[in-house]
Design a protein around this nucleic acid. Sequence first.
DNA 1: AAACTTAGTTATACCTTATAACCATTATGG
DNA 2: CCATAATGGTTATAAGGTATAACTAAGTTT
Lengths: 165, 165
Amino acid sequence: MPGSSPRAGDRPDDSLIAADRTLRQFSGYTMKRAFHVIQSDLNAALAPLGLRMLSFSALVVVVDNPGLRQSQLAEVLAIERPNLVLVIDELERAGLICRNPSPDDRRAYALDPTEEGRALCGTAIHAVQEHEDRVARALAEPERQALIAALLRIETPEEGETSDG
Amino acid sequence: MPGSSPRAGDRPDDSLIAADRTLRQFSGYTMKRAFHVIQSDLNAALAPLGLRMLSFSALVVVVDNPGLRQSQLAEVLAIERPNLVLVIDELERAGLICRNPSPDDRRAYALDPTEEGRALCGTAIHAVQEHEDRVARALAEPERQALIAALLRIETPEEGETSDG
DNA sequence: AAACTTAGTTATACCTTATAACCATTATGG
DNA sequence: CCATAATGGTTATAAGGTATAACTAAGTTT
C-alpha cells in the first residue's frame, strides 16, 4: 500500500509520493497528466504568436490544404463544426487565413492562408518543433516514435495489431 | 504534400485522410487525439457508476490513503485546491467519502472513504480495468508498458534518461 | 415542386483548469 | 505574547474545450 502508517494526514508529505500508485497502472490517468504538461508547454510556446494549440492546428492544415472547406477541416481535426467557427473567426481576424467563396457551392467557404498566415505558420512550426525537442530530450528517439505510433493505434484501433490476447 | 491537386475543396474527401500529416509528427497533437478517445471511453465506462475520470481518481486516492487532507489530495492529483472542492462535495453527497475533522489541525479535513465508497471504488476499478483492456487490445503488452513509461517521463523529465542528443 | 440533405452559424450547456480573494486557524519571530 | 505571515478550505470568476439542438441558405433527390 502507498504508506505504512494508517492515516495519510499524519504522515509527512514524502510518504504521499506514490499515493496514486493504483491509478498509475491505467494509461488514461498517466496520459492525462502527461498531456496536461505538454499542452501547457505548447500553449506557452504558441502564445507569443497569438496562437493556441487548436488555432495552430487549424492554421497548419489550411496552409497544407488550401481551399478546403470548414466542414472538411473540422473532420480532419476531429472537432465538431460549431466549435470550429470561432477558431476560423480568430484566424481570419488575425489576417492569417480568409474565407473565400467556394466556386462549386455558394454555401461553402474555401479556406485559404494569407501570405502572413503562411509566414506565421512557418514560425509557429519552428516553435512547436522546439517544444517537441524538449519531449525528445526526455525520450530516446525510437522511444518517441514508438510513443506516437502507440498513440495513433489507440486513437484508431486496427485489427490484427493486437498482442497476445 | 497532402493531396496532388491544388485546391483541397475540390478533391474527394478521401484525399484528405493525411491532411494533418504535418501535425502528426508532433506528439502533442497525436496525444491530444488519443487522449480524447480514451477519456470519452473512460467517462462512458464510469458514468453508470455516477463517476467521472476526476471523481474516480479522487476516490481511489482517498481509499488508498485514508485520512489525507484535501490539499494533499490536490497535490497528489496535480490539480488546484479550489478545483477539488466541488469534486469532494460530489463524492460526499454521493455518500462515498466523508470530511472528518482532522485531529491535528482544526482547519483541515481528514478524508475517509465510507463502506459504500470502498465498494464502489472496487467496482469502478474493474470498469476502468476493462477499459484498459481495450487499450491493451490495440497494443502489445510491452508496448503498453512502454507507453506508460514514456508518458511518465514526459510528465517528469529525469536527467540522464535522454537519447542521443 | 416538395422533401431531404448539407454548409455554416448561433445559442447553449457542461467540464476542466486557473487565479484572486476571503475566513479561520496555525506557525513564526520580534 | 502579540503582530505578522503562512496554510487549509472555500467562494467567485474567467477562460478554454467539447457537445448538442436548432436555424438559414443553398444544394440534392424524387
